[in-house]
Simulated assay, not measured.
Amino acid sequence: MSSPVAVVTGASSGIGAATARWLAGAGYRVLLAARRADRIEALAEELTRAGQEAEAHVLDVTDRAAVDAFAAGLDRCDALVNNAGGALGLETVADADPANWRTMYEVNVVGVLNVTQALLPALVDSGAGTVVVVSSTAGHATYEGGGGYVAAKHGAHVLAETLRLELLGQPVRVIEIAPGMVHTEEFSLTRFGGDAERAAKVYEGVPDPLTADDVAETITWAITRPPHVNVDLLVVRPRAQASNTRVYRTS
């Protein structure tokens, strides 16, 4: 039998790239979907050299025509990891840039909708499909300055919750993984427009924030449960974080 196929969006870095590595190690043929060709091509080459199966597919999840074309070219899909997303800015509601809010909603919500809709027929046909939505603890509790990102991730949470209801009786699981503080190379840097000093302060003094591998291992564990086992929602935080607004720092 051919290897099961997993599509990972936002696979060019961070949680997406780590998840691709973990799923490839678990025996999946991993389709790496992201906008940056050089990143995903290098990762596909890395995995192939390691004797694993991986393909790079340049894809913008907000481009519905491109998503549909990508889906039409697949021979099968057993698991979809909707990981593409991100935050822009940390301004108050009064001062927020509407363009940033619009971009966050397009990527974190409409992007998930686009890819899920396009791949759902193949996931059903697999007989044991899995849709993973990588949301955030931000989608479950708000914090000052996070209004736009919180709204977008709450949208992703609601999408997953609704889809699970609507697919009842179909051979597809819907899993939501909601990470808390994860120290990746790009998340905070992107949020603060490339301001490395400001991005570093997010994790300053925090003992052992989560890593991309921590979340990727969690995603892979959930996907590799027996098909009848659905992990509806798994919130994963570092021990130093009790909530979105309560974080222990050594300094």
Rank of each mutant, 00 (worst) to 15 (best):
Q241F: 00
A42K: 04
S136V: 04
R198N: 04
S13N: 14
T48Y: 04
R173F: 10
A178I: 11
V133C: 15
T162E: 12
A72L: 08
I15P: 03
D208R: 14
A71M: 06
V182A: 09
I15L: 06
D75L: 01
A216V: 02
T62L: 08
Y28A: 00
A178D: 11
V93R: 03
T19L: 02
A222L: 05
G85N: 07
Y248M: 15
R249D: 08
G193S: 04
T162P: 10
A152D: 04
A160T: 09
L74G: 00
L167I: 12
T220I: 03
R39L: 12
G86C: 08
L88I: 12
D78G: 09
H228T: 12
T130S: 15
L23E: 00
N83G: 02
F70V: 02
R21F: 03
P207W: 11
I175V: 15
T218Q: 10
G16D: 03
G89E: 07
P227S: 13
N100V: 05
G169Y: 07
N244G: 13
A141M: 13
E45V: 14
T116S: 14
R198I: 06
H154G: 12
L234C: 13
A56N: 06
N83K: 04
L120T: 12
A79P: 06
L119R: 02
R249Y: 08
E217F: 01
R49T: 14
A96V: 14
R49I: 04
A66I: 01
V110R: 14
H154S: 14
R225P: 07
A222D: 07
V231T: 14
D232A: 15
Q170L: 15
T62R: 12
M181D: 11
R35H: 03
D232K: 15
R198S: 08
V112G: 05
D78K: 06
V67M: 07
E217L: 00
T130F: 02
T162C: 15
H183L: 13
H140P: 02
A50F: 03
P209Q: 07
G180M: 06
V81C: 09
E46M: 01
G193M: 01
V8F: 05
R39T: 02
L74W: 00
A99N: 10
A50L: 11
T184C: 01
E161P: 00
N244Y: 10
D195A: 04
E55T: 14
L189F: 10
T250Q: 13
G180E: 03
S188N: 13
I177N: 09
L167T: 09
R29E: 14
R191K: 12
A37K: 13
F187Q: 13
G205C: 11
Y203R: 01
L47V: 11
D68E: 15
L88R: 13
A138L: 11
A33L: 05
S126C: 06
I175L: 11
I219S: 03
L47K: 08
L88E: 02
D214W: 02
E91W: 06
G139M: 13
V215S: 02
A17V: 05
V229P: 08
S12K: 06
S2Y: 07
N114Q: 13
L234E: 08
A65N: 06
C77P: 04
S126I: 09
Y105A: 15
R64F: 13
V206I: 14
G129T: 01
V202S: 03
G10T: 01
